[in-house]
Nucleic acid binder design. Sequence first.
DNA 1: ACCCAGCTATC
DNA 2: GATAGC
DNA 3: GGGT
Length: 995
Amino acid sequence: MNTAANLRARGYNDEDEGNRAFVDSLFSLERRMRHPLETMGEGSSDEELSEDEQGPYLLPMDEARKRHFANKKQEQQPTAPQKATTSQQGAAATASQRTQGIAPAPAPAPMEGVQELRGAQKGISKAPNPTKKTTNGSVARVAPVKKVSSRAPPLPPSPSAPPVAATSRLEPLPRTLHVPKPPPFPRTLHSTSAALPAGNTRTSVGRSSRPSKRPASSIEDSDSEDVEIIEQVSSPPKKIPAPLPSTSKKASPKKSAAPSPKKKRGKVPTVKEAWTKDDKMGAKAIQEKWQTLANYIDHLNEVADENPPKSKILSKFRILIVHPDITNGESSPNRIDAYLVRRIGQLMELGARLVKPQEFVARSPSSSFTDGDANEWTTHVIVPEIHPGLRIRFEKVLGCLGLDPQGITVEQLGDAVHVVREKWAWDYEAAVKFKTDLPDEADYYLPDDPRHKPTASTSPRKKNKGKTAKGKGKGKAKAGEYDTSDSSGAEDGEDKEAERASISPFGTQDYPLGEKPPPRQLLERLAGEDKAKKQRADGSASSDHLAVEPMAGLHKEFAYIKKHGADQVDRELKFADQEHDRLNSEARGELHPLDGEDTTILDERSDDNETEEEEEEEERKRYASKRVLPDGWREFVTNKGKKKFRPPPKGYACDRGSSTDPSKPGPNESIARVLDQLSIINKGDEWRERGYSKAAAALRNCPYPVTTHSEARELYGIGERIASKIVEVIQTGTHRRLSMSTNYEKIISVFSNIYGVGRSLAEIFYDKGARTLHDLKAKPELYNVREPQMLGLKYYDDLLQRIPRDEVTRLFEYARAAAAKIDPKLEVHCMGSYRRGAMSCGDIDLLVTRDPSDGKDHTGMIAQLWDMLKEEKIIAHELTSSDDWNALDAKYNALCSLPQPGSLMRRLDILGVPFDELPACLIYFTGDDHFNRSMRLKARHLGYRLNQRGLYKDVTRGRDGTKLTEGSKVLCKTEKDIFKLLSVPWRPPEQRRCS
DNA sequence: ACCCAGCTATC
DNA sequence: GATAGC
DNA sequence: GGGT
Ligand SMILES: O=c1ccn([C@H]2C[C@H](O)[C@@H](COP(=O)(O)OP(=O)(O)OP(=O)(O)O)O2)c(=O)[nH]1
Ligand SMILES: [Mg+2]
């Protein structure tokens, strides 16, 4: 069960020959056909196994392996003749080795392999109900043959492939023998295949393993039960080779021929047109129409039949996509969704064949993709993008492929198939670029391919860089700062630019203040594309090289397991599972999400389990007693006998929490302020801005004064450059960069302090000639100042003031009283910095919700509340409001003030929240923002997604982190549930100040 | 070289 | 989709 | 900007 343990036990790094052979044996069997989804996770009752079956299977894997290898040796002899016939002398040695695994083994060896496999299957497929089995079996039986066939038709575009297969079949390929090492990647077949002399037949090579095992197994085990076996039995005698290819071939022509005439009415959509159209249907419609992944593949195949994709770039790829929801378990396995529509469409558009889960066939690792069976082997398995090691859950992936999780390691799988992460689909460097908008086919050739068009190559990349606009904006900013030369001039050749440039010290390509240089790529691009072009032109050599390392997508997983140990990984997996189960199943008493959290840290409120209580007890001590040292910080004594503190090595801010008393300025406050300023100055480069901001936070969180470069560097979030700046600040009290700030910068800063005005608008104002707030007020039309900004302008000073806690309390009470009149059960909570205990707040953050257990929710009540507050003259101006006042989940923004003369105008934030989202929403709305971001980041790294609505598990993400699937919500009833799942030590709101 | 939270509201 | 904001 |  436990993949990690399995890995460890078997030594996942093990590459010895034996291992390979073993793998061979495992994979050479045809895939058992039971559909994994149906059988997955079913208890495997070993007792049911016949003795025969049990034997090898029950052995510890190592034991089994040994035996297996021992048998292998015996096999060798029989294989020998074959090699002789097929291969040259020079190749003999390697050939023999290679053939070992492949060669039709004598009965004994295969048997073992078979047995193991079968046992494994049993374990998996051990379906509780026999009917299932039969169905599975039937499916399975059919699948191997049919799948190919059915699949084949759609692939007229890959003419090369079929012929190859055919020839190879007829005339066995010695290919493998010649090649010392089979190319890990499915190179294009044409070149290799054509060159190949006839050699071993599929029977001998590709099939060898298969047949051998089959017969043995079939004969020996009289399992009537396993349909697969039956099928297998029949097939081996028939010479496996024949049925598969022939059928496939036959089928394909038929299919293609038949449908095309019929359907040829009007325009036949291309694959791209088809899938883009489907994509637009929306997730719901898609699911209703096709329901399963297999159905959709069929659908697109039909399209491809009639209108074959022109591109053949991926025509040698047979790709199986493992949907995250499949790995997720029973909920909605094999479900088609929008993400898959896109992905499948994109792949097919490039000529790839999509393999349905039932159709999976792994190649024997020791045979080449160019071997006879090349047309059947699945070349790629795309697995969900999940956190390294933690949530990969290979047992489930393997289950989906019909493989035994206990008998096969990840790496073994990798030997047979390219297991790649979802993001592989985007991996431009590695293979081809899959973008949402597919550019010209030429873009898909690698740079050294003569057909490659260098031009378009950069564009998709940009797109990837998240928010293009932002990137652009950033680029602009950077250009302005760093590079005088061209881009800046082009983009804004105005006086302001001149002004900026003249004063800015960054006009040169030196970085006088030690700035981080921009990425080389950017520099190169700015320098000119010629070089790149040249380089591309140079690399020529092989054109058939979509080189991807096998398992390229899984290095992270290995690294993680290596680093933390398989045991640890197992524990983590187990913990998550248990916790999910607990949260889902447990009928926990009605516990208000706020119970026990909002009041006092000392408050105990039960929680269901003792360990938790213990933890709380501990925390209580830690926090109640003046929080001596925050988590992870440690005291140590220096050489000179001085006591000092060491910060925690690293980590998420949410794990560290706040360790210093927010009410008093810490020892590093003055430095932090300077960094804040630097952060503001760098507004416009969000990451630089954030870098400074995080550094400031690190300083504030440091309980001792930082006095040296090295001390500064110890803090997580302070690097070389900022440490140097800190030194300067310590020495001079400020930083040169601040005193250099230009008039322009100052004005922009003033403008963007207006509520609703950001950097962009501020620059526009400036460009239009505005220099003061008065300018803007004077002629708002000229500057296109809109309502919210007008208000921001009007109350500019008010809104910059912090609000004393007392005042927030009073405003809050007004709202609460109003709510009580509407419905006594309508809850209003004050969130944000107020909940964190701040003595002054930037605004008033109110949360409105209602426990719907009596059948009523707060639909429409917010509107009422809104009106009442208006009547009471609390709310003076509406800034934004949700379009749907009845929405449970909506956000409102206003300016308000105490109904008394002289009171300042304040920002008011009201958030309507569905009650079941309260826990996540509490976390969100309590903040602070750094805390949220770090917690969400941690969640992401753990394979979750955290937002204001909830915690979602099994989220699939693309290469750039873009969310591909929603994941499924984990039932959390309190904030603590979420903290616990993410292994974030519980901390009350007061200690969530990370900035 | 790549990543850095995730969402709503408005235009 | 860009911008501003939470 | 920092971190990996
Ligand atoms: O970018 C942001 C900004 C805010 N929040 C959350 C956390 C924050 O605590 C809450 C309220 O936002 P607000 O801007 O009011 O911040 P605050 O924490 O309340 O501080 P302030 O005292 O400035 O209002 O919304 C985020 O998740 N991301
Ligand atoms: Mg606030």
